[in-house]
Amino acid sequence: MTQVKVEVSLYEQDYLLWIEDVVNKLRNRDIEDLDFDNLIEEIESLGRSDKRELESRLRELLEHILKRNYVNMPDCYRGWVESIIKQRIGIRKLLKDSPSLKPYFSEVFDEVYADALQIVRKSYPQCYFPDTWPFSRDIEAMLNVDFWE
């Protein structure tokens, strides 16, 4: 019986070591030995990660703006406003690092609003929440306007 030796790539063996290896090869301009397939996959995933982060932060921002506006629980206002501030800071920093995400903000707004609406309606069935976003969708407004004042 012959044994087949399966070669496991560095990427599969030790991700951190693979990253260090790729960085060293890039610094040394050693493009001949680069693991292009995995490098391309990793770079693509960075963009997807930023998009997912933007969606997540926007969803939480919308949830808490909705709660602050439509849920009559004054004892919770402070926590919701705090969360709104944190998400706005996070979105601002993300857009500063990747300004090309700004069109994506508008592109996913309706889908993210639908998700936020599903969450708040489930959590607060006694409260009314509008089917469509009732305030400005402009990025600057979303990051600066206190819609409840």
Rank of each mutant, 00 (worst) to 15 (best):
T2H: 09
Q3L: 08
Q3A: 06
V4A: 07
V4S: 07
V6S: 09
E7V: 08
V8P: 06
V8N: 06
S9H: 03
L10D: 04
Y11I: 02
D14T: 06
L17E: 09
L17Y: 04
W18L: 00
I19P: 07
I19L: 14
D21N: 15
V22L: 09
V22G: 00
V23S: 01
N24P: 02
N24Q: 12
K25Y: 09
L26P: 09
N28K: 15
N28S: 15
N28Q: 15
N28R: 15
R29F: 15
D30H: 08
I31Q: 08
E32Q: 14
E32T: 13
D33W: 09
D33V: 08
D33Y: 12
L34Q: 08
D37S: 15
D37F: 12
N38G: 03
I40F: 07
E41S: 12
I43E: 04
I43S: 06
S45F: 10
S45D: 14
G47R: 10
G47N: 13
D50S: 11
D50P: 06
D50L: 08
K51C: 02
R52N: 12
R52Q: 07
E53S: 13
E53R: 09
E53K: 12
S56M: 10
S56A: 14
R57L: 11
R59I: 01
E60L: 13
L62A: 11
H64K: 11
I65L: 07
L66E: 06
L66W: 10
R68Y: 08
R68G: 00
N72H: 13
N72M: 10
M73L: 14
M73K: 14
C76E: 08
R78K: 10
W80H: 00
W80I: 06
V81S: 13
V81H: 14
E82G: 13
E82L: 07
S83K: 14
S83A: 13
I84Y: 02
I84F: 03
I85C: 05
Q87N: 09
Q87C: 05
R88Q: 14
K93W: 08
K93P: 02
K96F: 06
D97R: 09
P99S: 00
K102F: 04
F105C: 01
F105V: 03
S106T: 12
E107K: 13
E107D: 11
V108F: 03
V112E: 02
Y113A: 05
A114N: 03
A116T: 05
A116I: 11
L117V: 00
L117R: 01
Q118G: 11
V120Q: 03
V120S: 01
R121S: 00
R121D: 04
K122S: 13
Q126L: 00
Q126R: 00
D131N: 11
T132S: 08
F135M: 02
F135A: 04
R137K: 14
D138L: 04
D138I: 05
I139P: 05
E140W: 00
A141Y: 01
A141C: 10
L143G: 05
L143A: 09
N144H: 01
V145W: 02
W148S: 11
W148T: 04
W148A: 05
